[in-house]
Amino acid sequence: MLETLLTHVASAAEATGETTEASGDIMSSLGIDWQMLAFQIIGFALIVFLLGKFVFPILLRSIDERNAKIEEGLKAAREAEDNATKAQSKIDDQLAEARREAKEIVATAKDEATAMLSKADEKAKQNAKHVLDQAHDEISKEVIAAKKALHNETLELVASATERVIGKTHSAKADKAVIAEALKGADK
């Protein structure tokens, strides 16, 4: 096919060579060779044709494939970015929830600690009051016991002293007077 094409191009060049002889002087003064130009144009067209038929499709296909891959990659990247954003958002939500729960736990713990302290304080006060009351009771009992002991000891001392004094000083005359007084009292 290529040989047939080149044969046709040569025949056409020979034909145009004859018709352009008249204008050849202006062109040769410009340095333009019509035959060569025609060959170059035909060759360029042939190359363009061949490239367009055999090379450019392959190139374009590979470029398209590469674009598709790039597009795929970009899509995957966007999807990954979306997923990452969603995951981050989820993490942020969970963190916020965890912080809220932690805050609640701390508040509850503080309240419970305050309540326990109050209870312990109240219990300590009650214990102290109980100890104080017991001490007061003990002291009262001891005071009462001491008063009893003093009362009894005083009675005993008075009785003993009276016995000794009367034993030493009571005369028969005084005794007679005491007896007479006692009998008068008994008579009444």
Partner: peptide, 13 residues
């Protein structure tokens, strides 16, 4: 007097 002193001693608590 002994009886009176005895009564006095009986007043112990």
């Amino acid at each position: 007097f002994a009886h009176r002193l005895s009564q006095l001693r009986e007043r112990k608590i």
